[in-house]
Design a protein around this nucleic acid. Structure first.
Lengths: 412, 412
DNA sequence: AGACATTAATTCGTGTCCGAAACAAATATT
DNA sequence: AATATTTGTTTCGGACACGAATTAATGTCT
């Protein structure tokens, strides 16, 4: 099989490591069956030999061979014969890779204005994408199911014939519990306490996991992004509100109740600015869109641009030297720095990743904002970096969620 | 062997469950060898039959018998024959318990004014205690080692002859990394970056683990306190500063770098009150002793009591109707509530335990302070409770640390 | 060219761990 | 006394993985 063979995962050309998924398994050695550890290691590494597998997993070579043979026989792995280029002495290793074409999983993301979807193979490579505009009045669960089914149908149509789709992940804003599959509440839905995973699984006819959007982003960073090599990190995102995802010991941490972490509603000021949640002093009330927009009228001398363009106009003014506009962003930036510092102080992560769509952090003058953080943390703060993705990150994270839930079933 | 036999752990008379240690093991099933899981389960339960062991650990009864037989043979467990009181049909179960008298571990605590130490048996029951006043000038590592050795000698003298001491735990304020055994920095020491665990192990002649004081308290709650049955909780303490300990999935979480969490230096106000750390707006700068004391002069009309009695005098005045004194405590309480709310928002724990010595939370009018928290969290806050211990909690936590580190060695 | 070193992968014997089920023991109920 | 019920033990077998010896495929050295 050649490297161009579509069955194996494509070679990345950028500096990122190949493969997908966390670089080290979450559990300590010997918790999971060797079969799963080997498969996940191959997927994570992208391409790896048996000998390297044995060394990395700290098992004897004699234990690797039969497991790999079985995985080859069931066509979950394949051998790449023409890798050549040894240069070293000794018998050249046989490179292994996952059979990416054995199955696909779908990642689905519901947001307030648009649905997006991605189909990825078992190596995590996208093979198809689709979007669907969201009708504003679509706030009921039956309607949601219709929309998701439509989105999924479009996705399958785009992909054409191919491997079977064996799992899906679905994400949306709100309080969603991945473990139970329940949606407790969502800002874009009227109902509460819905068994969303069950409903969607039945409607789509495939096993579906659900999670909230901040956790999707965290999964995207853990599986495909800058968090793959880190044991403990935090993901902060600014979209509708301020979201937070945590990774503890290479695994996503969802708290005791399974809902998300609420960085956006941590209090940064007693009796501070009013927040959408009805409380005062929330970080969101200083950093989120609505917080900036509500002050924009002053800076723009009452010339309110059409809805949806306020931030852009304000940003242009700030760059143009408008002191009031600049002051708005400055304060938001300082408060965001404070929020990040608090995350660093409370969690002591390896790194904080500001993730999401690009512009948000431009608005906040990321460089200047980040420069404030060291003055607000007791120890040296962890490296903080901005990771800008395209609009399909969320779907990518949902696909990672589906993939991580599918893997045990696939290997069983 | 009767229940009065000193070899088994004493029966608790209060409502707490018997035994010590987390009620569920941190790791998923089958990660640790069954031998260790059984021993820890017996210790955790206090008294338990083989059949119950099999059911609780989800292993077959046939797997339990040989392991227990071996543990009986090596005198790590014992059978209690006269428990009787079956009342039920069928063969009465044979109750097992750990042989508490097989060995002891020491818990040592260094603070700014006093050293305290506790000797506990393998069931976690204290068998001896000792204290040693600390000389103010004692800020060097050699002197610390001398003092700790003296403390340990006193402890052994108090205990008299008995089982061997097989391990010790040592805690002090500052940034201590349990995993590496290093003290990066401590407010009560002049040196930095000391391999403390190695030094103390050599000096005392027994295997010693180190950790910071907030984590000791967390261990105490996890092993002996209200956290035993919880999977995820936070421990907040107010002593010299404001400390935080976290338990994630039944195991203490120490962050990526092994130092403690810095709740006391999370920022609750931009450009707020000046903190000892040199930054502004830290929670500590509103809640810790020094924050209250520096405002006391105003409330006490310049009549400054002798050092060390300021808080008591201020508290008395506040209770007596002094509005200024009351305002000082009120503000501190509100900020503490804010800090607790932030912990709840960021961590989503099962519970938050305010732990430490009793008076601190009286100062802060715990009831009224706690009533503020729900107004500051997005979701319903977790139950928050005050757990008041005596002055030996820290040593107790250090002993728990030693015990948890000793167990694998003991069973090997 | 051929012996040798080196690295990769397989085979095979062994041991550990644990589950399933049959069996033995000790009690209460009928 | 017979039976039901629950606890604990024994035995067999299977799954899993280690480790040593073996086979395989290359580069290096003389």
């Amino acid at each position: 099989m050649s490297l161009d063979d579509p069955r194996i995962n494509a070679i990345r050309t950028d500096g990122d490591p190949p493969g997908c998924g966390p670089l080290r398994s979450a559990r300590p050695s010997s918790s999971l069956p060797l079969r799963q550890r080997i498969y996940e290691k191959v997927r994570s590494a992208g391409r790896i030999s048996r000998a390297a597998l044995a060394k990395d997993l700290e098992v004897s070579p004699g234990s690797v061979t039969p497991v790999v043979s079985d995985l080859l026989a069931t066509e979950l792995l394949c051998e790449l014969e023409d890798v050549g280029q040894t240069g070293a002495r000794g018998r050249p290793p046989v490179t292994l890779a996952v059979r990416a074409d054995r199955a696909l999983v779908a990642g689905l993301k519901v947001s307030d204005h648009e649905y997006s979807a991605l189909l990825v193979d078992l190596a995590g490579q996208p093979v198809a994408r689709a979007t669907l505009p969201r009708a504003a009045e679509s706030r009921s669960v039956p309607r949601l199911l219709d929309d998701v089914a439509e989105l999924y149908a479009r996705l399958l149509a785009t992909a054409g014939d191919g491997p079977p789709v064996l799992g899906a992940g679905l994400g949306m804003p709100g309080m969603l519990d991945h473990a139970s599959g329940r949606m407790r509440w969502s800002p874009i839905m009227a109902e509460r306490d819905v068994d969303l995973a069950v409903c969607v699984s039945e409607r789509l006819g495939i096993e579906t996991s659900v999670d909230n959007d901040a956790n999707l982003l965290t999964m995207a960073e853990l599986w495909f992004g800058k968090g793959r090599a880190l044991s403990d990190f935090a993901v902060v995102t600014i979209e509708y509100g301020v979201g937070l995802g945590l990774v503890v010991d290479h695994a996503p941490y969802r708290g005791a109740h399974g809902h998300g972490m609420e960085l956006g509603h941590t209090k940064v000021q007693l009796d501070g600015a009013l927040c959408r949640c009805g409380q005062r002093g929330c970080l969101e009330a200083y950093v989120a869109d609505f917080a900036l927009v509500r002050e924009a009228a002053v800076a723009l001398n009452g010339e309110i641009p059409p809805r949806g363009e306020v931030l852009e106009a304000l940003f242009a003014q700030a760059k143009d030297g408008n002191a009031a506009a600049r002051a708005i962003f400055d304060r938001a930036g300082r408060y965001l720095a404070l929020g990040l510092a608090n995350v660093a102080n409370l969690f002591d992560p390896n790194r904080i990743i500001l993730s999401g769509s690009r512009m948000r952090y431009d608005f906040l003058y990321a460089e200047e904002m980040l420069a404030e953080v060291p003055g607000l943390t007791l120890n040296d703060p962890p490296p903080i970096e901005v990771n800008a993705w395209d609009d399909f990150v969320w779907a990518r994270g949902a696909a990672a969620l589906a993939l991580s839930d599918l893997t045990p079933r696939l290997l069983a």
